[in-house]
């Protein structure tokens, strides 16, 4: 691993922490435009909200102390998963970057569920179980989608695929469709924000958090959301990097630009839908995942 690899990976993490709240404001602003209202007054509004929460006193509810560890684990896992992506250069985890990505993504989701269970609040527990059901279905499809994307490049590593992947367009597109759907679900936006479903669960998983703890909770959620957008962006960027030779800083810029674009698309989709129910969401996802997975692997198997 060279210094530049590490520097770009660290830069991606820094950028993720810095711009995820800004992207959240963009998200809010976009929604406001679609709703015919003004929205946040400044692009830094989510940052201001977080800063305000950070300045408040720490109030830990009974059993609330237990949430601190999973809260930290969620943010850390999301950041580690991000560092598995190639930011214009191979990831520090290459060639096992995909394995690490799967592992750390799963850890981020699992620790998010742990926040709910640890808090002991009935709304949080219900939210946690909803997350668990959704993640159980989604993670399987995510692993299959990620693997199918990698297989259709001929290299079981995103970092490797960016340099010497042999892309098979049709399986790649189908695998990408499966993967991007999984990633949208994992971004916990409407209609899949079931763990936090505000009107029913009053913030669900995060309900026991306030002040600085809530600030970290919000950052964790935003980082998970950034991760979902960045992985989708990476899957779009790989063939561009491979065939246009966009590496280094331009590659980093490409990944970042695509991440922002994906985030905006996610925001627009969320603004045009309503919230699902856990039973309906799972059934809908299974009915989409099974045919997409079968199609992707059939295409791969038959060498299309």
């Amino acid at each position: 691993m060279s210094f530049i690899n590490l520097a770009l990976s660290l830069a991606l993490l820094g950028v993720a922490v810095a711009i995820a709240p800004i992207l959240d404001t963009v998200d809010r602003k976009l929604r406001a435009r679609l709703h015919s209202r003004i929205g946040p007054p400044t692009i830094l509004q989510t940052w201001y909200d977080i800063a305000k929460l950070l300045r408040k006193e720490i109030v830990v509810s009974e059993g609330g102390a237990a949430v601190i560890v999973p809260l930290s684990m969620t943010a850390a896992s999301a950041l580690l998963a991000l560092s598995s992506l190639p930011p214009g250069m191979p990831s520090p985890f290459a060639p096992l970057d995909l394995l690490y990505l799967i592992m750390f993504s799963a850890a981020a989701h699992a620790s998010f569920i742990l926040i709910a269970v640890s808090s002991g609040n009935v709304y949080a527990v219900i939210g946690g179980f909803r997350e668990f059901v959704l993640v159980s279905v989604n993670e399987v499809a995510y692993v299959l989608g990620l693997t199918a994307v990698a297989l259709s490049t001929g290299v079981l590593s995103f970092s490797g695929a960016a340099y010497y992947g042999d892309f098979r367009p049709i399986p790649y597109i189908v695998s990408f469709a499966l993967l991007s759907l999984c990633l949208y679900v994992s971004s916990a936006r409407i209609p899949f924000d079931l763990g936090e479903a505000e009107p029913e669960l009053a913030s669900g998983v995060l309900i026991e958090l306030s002040g600085p703890l809530l600030a970290f909770g919000i950052i964790s959620v935003l980082l998970k959301r950034f991760l979902a957008a960045a992985v989708t962006a990476t899957a779009i960027a790989l063939p561009i990097m491979r065939y246009s030779g966009v590496y280094g800083l331009p590659g980093f810029g490409l990944l970042l630009g695509l991440t922002i674009a994906v985030w905006v698309i996610h925001a627009l989709i969320a603004a045009s839908l309503g919230r699902s129910r856990v039973g309906v969401a799972v059934k809908t996802l299974i009915s989409l995942y099974i045919p997409l997975t079968l199609l992707a692997y059939t295409l791969l198997l038959f060498g299309v």
Binding site: R31, L34, H35, S36, R37, I190, P191, D193, A197, P199, A271, S272, L273, G274, R275
Partner: peptide, 16 residues
């Protein structure tokens, strides 16, 4: 009702 179903676009436009 739209807000309770997570469809805030409906909420805002109905109130508009």
């Amino acid at each position: 009702a739209a807000h309770l179903l997570g469809y805030d676009a409906g909420f805002m436009h109905a109130w508009r």
